[in-house]
């Protein structure tokens, strides 16, 4: 197990090195900071998406749904748009991206507690109902978002534009420092919870008998997930199937259920997928295809496969 993790670390290191150095034609003083910020953002997105997805699958006890399939990031974009819409109306000359990010993140945390905490627990055994709810909820949020965006001032629109659709080439670097701090705190907390999450994954009844009442832990994890989704959506926009893809690969490679191995391996695989994929797209395919399209295509196929397998069972 440890060897597989080290192999992933080596692979990620290789991807990062190539990403930083391959085809650099400008002076290093420019190339390194320029590519470094993008690299940092990709890694942050990888950690937050994989960690959020893994914890979400643990508390909902299924391997098919992810926060983005349930419409978490669509809700974030909607809340962000509303925040900018409201603040812009109050004559803020310059809307600070950090402030709007924080407002939208807090709003997402509250909204997801309200919307999802009961449903995730009552309907979790009904996979079809969960999938349908997610699709309808996501569509609702996206429609409301585009409605608001049509009415808003073009300058304000620029603030929400990055978060509105997935893009890895233009990353919101203003938020990078803030996002890094938040992600490290949340990941540290998730890591602390790893043994308790293992127990929770055994099922509610078993978790109770082992002295881990699920309710409070589930709520805490839901808050952590909402924060992580805010971070990744703010940086690169909604990436629908990335989380599902990397967590499924992590389960395949580690072949365990323990979060001690799943957390790092999912994060490493997400890093390899994003950095390696971006490397190929930028240097080999000359940006002809956006990375998000490829990830969503492969991830979507994985989703369909898991769904068909899960429904047949």
């Amino acid at each position: 197990m440890a060897r597989r993790l080290w192999l992933l670390v080596a692979l990620l290191g290789l991807c990062c090195m190539l990403y930083m150095t391959w085809g650099a034609r400008a002076p290093w003083g420019f190339v390194l900071p320029f590519r470094g910020t993008k690299l940092a953002a990709l890694l942050l997105v990888g950690v937050s998406v994989s960690t959020a997805t893994l914890m979400f699958q643990t508390i909902t006890q299924n391997r098919i749904l992810t926060p983005s399939i349930m419409g978490f990031d669509a809700l974030y974009v909607f809340l962000l748009t509303s925040a900018v819409f409201a603040f812009g109306g109050m004559n803020f000359v310059q809307v600070q991206p950090q402030i709007t990010f924080l407002v939208a993140a807090v709003a997402l945390t509250c909204a997801s507690l309200l919307l999802f905490s009961t449903m995730l627990i009552t309907a979790r055994s009904d996979l079809l109902r969960m999938v349908l709810t997610g699709i309808i909820f996501g569509a609702l949020c996206r429609s409301l978002t585009s409605f608001l965006q049509r009415m808003m001032d073009p300058n304000e629109f620029a603030v929400v534009q990055v978060a509105s659709f997935a893009r890895f080439t233009q990353i919101e670097t203003d938020l990078l420092a803030l996002a890094a701090v938040i992600t490290s705190f949340v990941f540290a907390r998730a890591w602390q919870l790893r043994h308790r999450l293992d127990v929770l994954a055994l099922g509610r009844g078993t978790a109770i008998t082992l002295g881990e009442p699920p309710r409070r832990l589930e709520l805490e994890v839901l808050i952590l997930i909402a924060i992580l989704v805010s971070v990744s959506t703010a940086l690169v926009g909604p990436v629908a199937f990335l989380g599902l893809l990397v967590v499924s690969i992590a389960r395949l490679i580690t072949r365990t259920e323990t979060h001690r191995y799943l957390f790092p391996s999912a994060a490493l695989i997400a890093g390899v997928t994003l950095v390696g994929g971006q490397l190929l797209m930028e240097r080999v395919f000359q940006l002809t295809t956006p990375l998000s399209v490829v990830i969503d295509l492969v991830g979507g196929l994985v989703f369909l496969m898991l769904l068909l397998k899960g429904l047949r069972r």
């Binding site: 006890q61 994954a201 055994l202 099922g203 009844g205 078993t206 109770i208 008998t209 259920e257």
Partner: peptide, 9 residues
């Protein structure tokens, strides 16, 4: 307790 239908991974 051993619940009636434990759903273990």
């Amino acid at each position: 307790i051993l619940p009636q239908m434990p759903d273990q991974p």
